[in-house]
Design a protein around this nucleic acid. Structure first.
Lengths: 343, 343
DNA sequence: TTGTACGCGTTATCAT
DNA sequence: ATGATAACGCGTACAA
């Protein structure tokens, strides 16, 4: 099949003017165009169903209109919501949202960022969570510097070690808040199910728990730390290991809701009553969190809004309005039924 | 910030040759290049961290490397899985996956397709499900024709009225299978919770139920048809309306799992035992379907695999291997615990 | 084996 | 108010 593109020249011919004039009409240029010819051009454009070739425009203005988003897993509703927020905001404004799933794989992550470099992305959002890995850090550092010198706008959503603007998701604060809440309800024997070891987000959430404990003169106990991986399955497994020490525990803080949901499910499955025998707490407020048995008490991180705020920020940056800041997004305690007051 | 791009010319200068030679090296051209200069070029490329500008390449070859995907809601795990499958396959091959969320909104859908046209997408996947709406059909028909004449490869995932290749997801067959299963287990009084009215997918799934009923000489009863919208909330609401007629019903087929899950949740909530008092069946096999109470009996549509198969097909088409077909994906019955045999 | 010249579709600059 | 020309970065036909 031969690709027969309709160009500005075709329009010009039909409107009996020069390509320059057509371009001026398309771009609502300052440059004066007589009402008469403008109309003829408009008519020709309609007639030919012409839309300007954005690739060519891009080459000319040194813009790709591509905004890259690097994400761990688009199926994780946490990321999906953020992407949706960004996408709904950004694609209204004639930008292309280019998503990469990296499954926290070093090679995939580097591949993504190199593709975005080759495609001269106008902006890149690092939302996948920094990996704690030597090669990753070294190579990523290099590409990031190259992107910077290409003039690419960079933004990290979870904290990154690279020297780029980072928007924090209040990970630590959220973990602190939910732990505070447990303590305020009389819990002292608190277990924690962590996220994946190599994720900075995991680290921050753990720190939040520790900080809350310390603020209340309690100690974080290594033997009550269980490893999870931010998934439902991980939560289920953690529940099993937790069972041995259940008499040492009155509440469990899970590093995220998916984990908490798995935890609750498996505890139910094993005949352990939540929250009568043990309280379970999450972080994120996944849509399904309110439909567990019992509904999960958690911290809401309004991640969809974060997405739209990021979109707004990027667009401002792309329009060189440098004084804009990302609207922050506040964690909020959602008390449902998975915690029992034991004072 | 001034964007200072490194070009093929910079490489040529450093490697002491012409841009043409650099181009030949980059593209592993047939045209002979001496080993010596090739090495010098490679070295210069490394040294400058040069990657060819794909925008410029695109303008030259009339390729954008963009594959557009139009989807209803990226947060819907059904679509998310498909996209992930596509993305993982496609982005390995140097393509950009450009996703649009349309929320089944006519304007958004048209906006998306027009953007993809302007960006000269190499391929577009219509995965959002066709809308049954006059203006949508008319305008979409036009753009689709334009895309075709631009040489864009088009693919519909759920059936579309446009004259493009469609890959069926066995929607009707899946609905038929799950209804068959209910009937084989002694159920005759079967209710159906539909999907949104304006979706062709809804229509097909309903047809599947009707067909199964007819094959077993049973009649589809209008009063046992309840309207849903493919969401958990919709399922909950349906459960409430269903309650009045519960003595006329022994089993409910939900148009999808999200609906079935909401249904089960609300039935539990209302003290109706599933499956003791009523059986509930779904379609899709969402990841969370096996964690409901009781685990949901449903039909698995391996949608992630469909995604990778679509990716494979598109790539073949883009490489002009016309004899390739999309590998079909088979629905599979997953018997869990939400159906009771009442024979 | 290497290089020159031109064109992809668009727009900024400079005439007219 | 309009248009001719050059240039963005790259690839290719052609020449050397």
């Amino acid at each position: 099949m031969v690709r027969k593109e309709i160009t500005i020249k075709d329009v010009a011919r039909l409107a009996e003017c020069s390509p320059t004039t057509v371009s001026r009409v398309i771009n609502n240029s300052e440059h004066p165009v007589s009402k008469d010819t403008a109309e003829k051009v408009e008519a020709a454009i309609k007639r030919l169903n012409f839309s300007p070739n954005r690739i060519a425009q891009g080459l000319k203005n040194d813009k790709s209109n591509i905004i890259g988003v690097i994400v761990h897993d688009i199926c994780d509703s946490y990321f999906a919501q953020m992407i949706k927020g960004m996408e709904e905001f950004i694609s209204e404004h004639e930008y292309i949202v280019n998503i990469y799933n990296t499954s926290r794989d070093v090679d995939k992550e580097l591949h993504a960022v190199n593709m975005l470099k080759a495609n001269r992305a106008d902006a890149v959002v690092f939302a996948a969570g920094a990996l704690m890995d030597k090669r990753y850090e070294r190579e990523m550092y290099n590409v990031v510097e190259q992107l910077k010198s290409q003039g690419t706008i960079l933004l990290g959503v979870t904290p990154h070690p690279f020297a780029i603007k980072n928007i924090s998701l209040a990970n630590q604060k959220a973990a602190e808040m939910i732990t505070d809440y447990a303590i305020e309800n009389g819990h002292q024997k608190i277990a924690f199910i962590s996220g994946p070891q190599n994720l900075y987000t995991s680290y921050l959430r753990k720190q939040g728990v520790i900080k809350s404990l310390e603020n209340h003169s309690l100690q974080f106990k290594q033997e009550l730390l269980f490893e999870g991986d931010f998934t439902f399955e991980g939560g289920r497994k953690a529940a099993l290991s937790l069972l041995n020490k259940i008499d040492q525990i009155t509440a469990v803080v899970a590093a995220n809701d998916a984990t908490a949901l798995g935890l609750i499910w498996e505890l139910n499955n094993q005949g352990v009553k939540v929250p009568a025998e043990i309280s379970v707490l999450g972080i994120d407020d996944l849509p399904e969190a309110k439909y567990s048995y019992p509904p999960l008490t958690t911290i809401s991180l309004p991640i969809y809004n974060l997405g739209t705020n990021i979109g707004e920020y990027l667009l401002a940056q792309l329009n060189e309005e440098y004084d804009i800041n990302i609207k922050p997004v506040e964690p909020k305690l959602l008390t449902r039924d998975s915690l029992k007051n034991i004072e």
